[in-house]
Design a protein around this nucleic acid. Structure first.
Lengths: 297, 297
DNA sequence: CCATGGGTATCAGTATCTCTGATGCTGGAT
DNA sequence: ATCCAGCATCAGAGATACTGATACCCATGG
C-alpha cells in the first residue's frame, strides 16, 4: 500500500477510467492496471468494478482513508518545508466567503503596510480547500466560518489537526425572500424551518450538514445544491424562492430582495476561526499575533 | 516518503539507534541508514542528529505526522479486512479503567449468553491503545472514558475518525486522602484545587490534560506521573498524600482511605463513550445495538 | 450473427531500485 | 593515542516497476 498506488487509486476513481487516470498521472495504462492489481492483491479484496469503473464496497472504505492519507503526507512535507522558510515575503490567506470581516481585513491591510515588499494575497474558496491550502503550504493562514453551538469548535476535516482560534462571532441568520410570509419577524426558531425547502450551498454559505449537527435534527432536506463561493448568486436564488440558506447576520443584511432573520433557538452562532500552521514563519506570525484574542492567564 | 521508510524513521527514533532499529525491523543496519538518507534527501532536511541519535526540529515535525499516518494505513487495511468477516465468533472489547460500568458489563454477559460459541474478551488499557485497537481491528469495540463539558464529545486521537456514542455519564469526583482538610465537604469547585498537587495518571484515571481543557485553565501542574491502568495502586498514592486525581464518582466512592468529592464547578461530567468500526460485523453489531441509546426521531 | 471499437488485463523485457555484506569513517571513552 | 561502538558508503545480486505490444472482454451497431 504505497502512496503512489493510493494516488493512482483515487485518480482512477475520480476519472472513472484506467486510461484517463494513466494520462492524468503520466503513466501508461498498463502501469495503472498493475497498480490496482497490486493493491487488490495486497488487501485481498476487489476494489473496483470494471466497465464501468466504480469503487466496490472495499474500494469505498479505502477511499475514505486514501484521500486524507495523501493529504497528510503532503501536510508533513509542507510542515518540514516551512522550517526552511522558503517564502519570507509572502502572506497568503485562504478564506471562505462568510469569514472575511472588516476587522480581519483591516489587520491584513495593517500587516501589508507595516512590512514593505510583502506580497499579500487572499483566495476565496470552500472550506475543504481552505484547510487543505494551509496543510499543504499553499496558504499561510485560513479563515473558515461555520455554524455551531456557542461552546463548540468548528468541525474540520480529519486529515490532520490544525491549531485554530476564533476571530469573530455573530448571530446566525436565515435568508428568506423579502416577500416570504415570515420575512417580517424579528427572530425565528430553526425548528420551525426544518421542513422548509433549503438550498445546500456548502462553499458559499453554511453547509446544511452543519445546521443538522448544530440543531441535532434530521431535517433540512435540500432540493437544490449550489456550487461556488459567490453569495450574491446564491441570494438571487433565495430571492426567487428556490429555497432558504443561513449566513452570518451582518453579511446577509444588505442583500437585495432578501430578509435576514436572526435565529434564536437552538443556541447557534456563526463563528469564523483562523487556522494556522504549527510553526508559522515571519510575516504570518505577526498577523497571527495581531488577530489572536488577548487572554489574561 | 513511502510508509516503509516512515516506519523505519519512527523505529529509529524509538530505539534512539540505527542498529537497534535494524534488528527490530529485520533489516541490516545498512538498509536503515539508506532509508533515513533517502528520507532526508527527499525532504531536503536533516531529520536526525547522529551520535547520539535524536530527532531534529524537522524530525519532530515528521514524527507528528508519521505515527498517525502509519496508524491510519493499518486502519484502512483493517476496515477492508473487516468486510471479509474473518472472525465471526469473536467479540473483543478494549476498555479504559473508568469506562466499564455494571450496565455495559451486563450487556456483554447477555450477548455472551445469547450467542453460543462466542469468544468474548475484555482488555483493559489506556485511551490511545484502546482507540488504536479498534482502528487496527485488534478489538471490535472500545469503551473510553474522560472528563468533558456536558455537551462536548470526548477528545480522541487524530489518526482517523471513529463513530462513537455515549453509554453513561456520571458526576466527576476529586479523589482526596480521607484525612484531607477538604475531605468532609459535600462538593468542591475545581478552581479551588488548581494549585493543589496533582498526580497525572492518564491511563488509570482522567488525564490532567483533559481537566485543563475542560476547565479552560493552565493550572493542574503535576509532580508525579502514574503509568498503568490500575486504579487501586493509584488510590494508595492518593491516600498517602502524593497528590490528587479525578475519576467517576461511583467508581471512586469505595476506595479505601479515599474521599471522593463531586465537582460542581465548572460543569464537567465524566462520560464514557463506545467507539466502534464503521461497519461492525455480526456479534459486534448486536452488542452495539443493545447499548445504543434509543432515540425517537 | 459478426464486426468494430473503446477499454482493461497480461506478458516480456529492460531500467531502476532496494536490499545485503564488506568495509570505511567518526566521535567519544579509556 | 588507541580502541570501539555505531553510522556511512560501496558494489553487486535479486527484486521491482515501468513501457510497449498484444490479448481479451464487453457493448454497440450493422
Amino acid at each position: 500500500m504505497d502512496p503512489q498506488q493510493l494516488r493512482t487509486f483515487v485518480t482512477v476513481v475520480d476519472h472513472r477510467s484506467f486510461s484517463a487516470a494513466a494520462q492524468a498521472l503520466g503513466y501508461t495504462q498498463s502501469a495503472i492496471s498493475q497498480h490496482i492489481a497490486a493493491l487488490e492483491a495486497d488487501l485481498a479484496a476487489p476494489l473496483l468494478f470494471r466497465r464501468p469503473v466504480a469503487p466496490t464496497e472495499a474500494g469505498e472504505r479505502l477511499l475514505e482513508h486514501a484521500r486524507p492519507l495523501l493529504l497528510r503526507l503532503d501536510a508533513a512535507r509542507a510542515d518540514i518545508a516551512r522550517l526552511r522558510q522558503e517564502r519570507p515575503g509572502r502572506l497568503a490567506l485562504a478564506c471562505t466567503p462568510g469569514a472575511l470581516t472588516p476587522a480581519t481585513a483591516l489587520a491584513l491591510v495593517r500587516a501589508r503596510t507595516a512590512t514593505p515588499r510583502l506580497v499579500a494575497s487572499v483566495r476565496m474558496c470552500g472550506r475543504a480547500e481552505a484547510v487543505q491550502a494551509v496543510l499543504t503550504g499553499t496558504a499561510d493562514l485560513a479563515l473558515v466560518d461555520g455554524a455551531v453551538a456557542p461552546s463548540d469548535p468548528l468541525p474540520l476535516p480529519d486529515a490532520a489537526p490544525l491549531p485554530a482560534f476564533p476571530v469573530s462571532e455573530e448571530p446566525l441568520a436565515v435568508l428568506l425572500p423579502a416577500t416570504h410570509p415570515l420575512a417580517g419577524r424579528p427572530a425565528l426558531r430553526l425548528a420551525d424551518l426544518a421542513a422548509a425547502r433549503w438550498i445546500d450551498a456548502p462553499d458559499a454559505a453554511v453547509p446544511l450538514a452543519q445546521l443538522r449537527a448544530a440543531a441535532q435534527s434530521d431535517g433540512f432536506g435540500h432540493q437544490l445544491t449550489y456550487t461556488g463561493t459567490d453569495i450574491r448568486g446564491l441570494s438571487v436564488l433565495v430571492a426567487a424562492g428556490a429555497g432558504l440558506t443561513t449566513a452570518a447576520l451582518p453579511a446577509a443584511k444588505d442583500l437585495p430582495g432578501i430578509a435576514a432573520i436572526p435565529i434564536t433557538e437552538p443556541r447557534i452562532v456563526h463563528r469564523t476561526e483562523l487556522l494556522h500552521p504549527r510553526t508559522p514563519t515571519s510575516p504570518t506570525a505577526e498577523l497571527l499575533d495581531a488577530l489572536r484574542p488577548k487572554q489574561s492567564h
